[in-house]
């Protein structure tokens, strides 16, 4: 199974997936930490993938979404964005709607 398949499968099997540096309890980067705090503030249950523990995934996820950085958030299979966009959507309330599975207005 290629790394792209592994990524696809992780995203397919989990409604909310955060590819991050480190783990929710021990984020290894400020941006990843901020994304975790936002998801926790929304009481969202999410699968976290530590890209530092798997270099293949670390590079593979950047190609998968053609987005050069981590963290990367996926909800219902859709690439939502990195830490900045997740923050903006949290402030506008759009993120809470996506997390709840309602399409953004």
């Amino acid at each position: 199974m290629t790394v792209q398949d592994r990524i696809k499968e992780t995203i397919a099997n989990n409604r909310i997936v955060l590819f991050m540096k480190g783990t929710p309890h021990f984020p290894q980067c400020g941006f990843s930490g901020r994304a975790v705090q936002i998801l926790e503030a929304c009481d969202a249950e999410f699968a976290a993938v530590d890209v530092l523990a798997d270099m293949e995934i670390r590079e593979g996820v950047k190609q998968f979404s053609s987005w050069p950085t981590v963290p990367q958030l996926y909800i219902d299979g859709e690439f939502i964005g990195g830490s900045d966009i997740v923050m903006e959507m949290y402030q506008s309330g759009e993120l809470q709607q996506k997390l709840a599975g309602r399409p953004a207005a």
Partner: peptide
């Protein structure tokens, strides 16, 4: 928003990988 950020990343090209570690943008 994603497309907008990707336009910026494309403008920065390879430098995004090598030289810029943390760029937060609006």
């Amino acid at each position: 928003r994603i497309q907008q950020h990707q336009m910026v990343y494309q403008a920065l090209g390879e430098r995004m990988k090598s030289q810029i570690h943390a760029l937060s943008m609006r």
